[in-house]
C-alpha cells in the first residue's frame, strides 16, 4: 500500500501539470511544452520569497502567484500572439524554445543546486491503512483535489468559465457572442502558469527544486494528460493519479531507476492502443 500513497503524491503534481496542458490545449489547440518550467519557477519563487526574503508563507504564495500570472500573460501576449505564421507547429516550437529559455534563466538566477524550501505545515508522519504518510504529502493531495474542484466549478458554473468552453467548441461563434477570444487564450496561459506554479510550490518542500526539474515534470504531466485523454479535465486528473500510482508500483517491484521509463512506456501503450486516451472525447463535429 505504501507505493500507492507515494504514488498519490507525485500523481497530484502530474495531475496539476496535466490540467494545465489541457486548459491550454482546449482553448488554443496547442501543447505548451513550457508547462514543466512553470512548475520549476513556482518552486524557485517560493524559495526566493520564503528562504531569501523571509516573507510569511501566505505572502510568499501570493507573490509567487502574481509573478507567475504575469509570466503566463507575457508568454502568450508577447511570444505567441505576434508570431507571423501562426501554424500550430510553429507555436508549439515556440513553447519549446521558451521552455529552454526559462530553464536557462532559472539556472542563471538560482544556480545549479537543489534548493530547499521549508515545509509549510509541521512535518510529521501519519499512519494510514497499510502504511504511513507524510503530512506534507497529504497537503499536496488535498490541494490538488481542492484546485480540481474549484476549477471544474469555474468551468461549469461561471460566465467566464463557460466562455472558455465556448472557445473550445467554436472560436468564431464565441467571437460573435462577444467573447474576446484573444483574452481567453491569454487567460488560459495565465491559469496554466498558475497551476504549474502551485504544483511546483507545494511539492518543493518534499522534493526540493532544481532548474532541470521542469523537463521531467512537463513530460510526466504530458503523459498524464495523454493517458486521461488530451483536453479532458477529469481525464487529466485521473491520468495524473494513475501515472503516479503505477510509477510508484513499478518503483516498488523493480529497481527504482526504471521508474521514469515506465511513465513513458505507459504513454506509448496508450498512444498505440487508445490514442484518444481513457476519457478522451473527439471534438464534436458540426453536422
Amino acid at each position: 500500500m505504501q507505493f500507492f500513497y507515494s504514488g498519490l503524491t507525485s500523481g497530484s503534481i502530474y495531475a496539476l501539470v496535466a490540467i494545465g496542458f489541457n486548459i491550454i490545449y482546449n482553448t488554443t489547440g496547442l501543447i505548451n511544452f513550457a508547462q514543466g518550467e512553470f512548475v520549476v519557477l513556482g518552486g524557485m519563487l517560493m524559495y526566493t520569497t520564503l528562504t531569501i526574503l523571509g516573507l510569511p508563507v501566505s505572502v510568499a504564495f501570493l507573490v509567487t502567484f502574481i509573478i507567475m500570472f504575469i509570466v503566463g500573460v507575457v508568454f502568450e501576449k508577447f511570444f505567441l500572439r505576434y508570431v507571423k505564421l501562426k501554424t500550430e507547429t510553429n507555436l508549439i516550437a515556440i513553447t519549446i524554445a521558451l521552455a529552454v529559455i526559462m530553464r536557462g534563466i532559472a539556472m542563471v538566477i538560482w544556480g545549479r543546486d537543489s534548493l530547499a524550501v521549508p515545509p509549510y505545515i509541521e512535518d510529521k508522519t501519519i499512519s494510514v491503512i497499510g502504511g504511513s504518510m507524510n503530512s506534507q504529502s497529504i497537503l499536496v493531495i488535498i490541494v490538488c483535489f481542492f484546485v480540481a474542484i474549484i476549477l471544474s466549478s469555474f468551468f461549469k458554473y461561471t460566465k467566464y468559465g463557460k466562455a472558455f468552453r465556448a472557445c473550445y467548441d467554436d472560436q468564431t461563434a464565441a467571437t460573435i457572442c462577444g467573447i474576446n477570444v484573444n483574452m481567453i487564450r491569454m487567460l488560459s496561459f495565465a491559469i496554466a502558469s498558475l497551476l504549474g506554479a502551485l504544483a511546483g510550490a507545494i511539492i518543493a518542500p518534499i522534493t526540493f527544486v532544481t532548474y532541470t526539474d521542469g523537463i521531467m515534470a512537463g513530460l510526466k504531466g504530458f503523459a498524464a494528460a495523454i493517458i486521461g485523454g488530451l483536453g479532458s479535465f477529469w481525464g487529466g486528473l485521473f491520468g495524473g493519479f494513475a501515472l503516479g500510482v503505477i510509477e510508484g508500483f513499478f518503483a516498488f517491484v523493480l529497481p527504482s531507476g526504471f521508474k521514469d521509463a515506465f511513465a513513458f512506456i505507459i504513454l506509448l501503450l496508450i498512444l498505440f492502443i487508445k490514442p484518444t486516451g481513457l476519457f478522451g472525447k473527439k471534438k464534436a463535429v458540426r453536422v
Partner: peptide, 26 residues
C-alpha cells in the same frame, strides 16, 4: 448587432441553456 452564422455554429458540447447564455455574454 447579432449574427446567426452560416451553418448555425452552436456550441455542441454545451447545454441549450448555456448556449443561450453565451449569446448574452456582453
Amino acid at each position: 448587432i447579432s449574427l446567426v452564422p452560416e451553418g448555425r455554429r452552436i456550441f455542441p458540447n454545451m447545454t441549450v441553456m448555456e448556449n443561450v447564455e453565451m449569446g448574452g455574454y456582453s
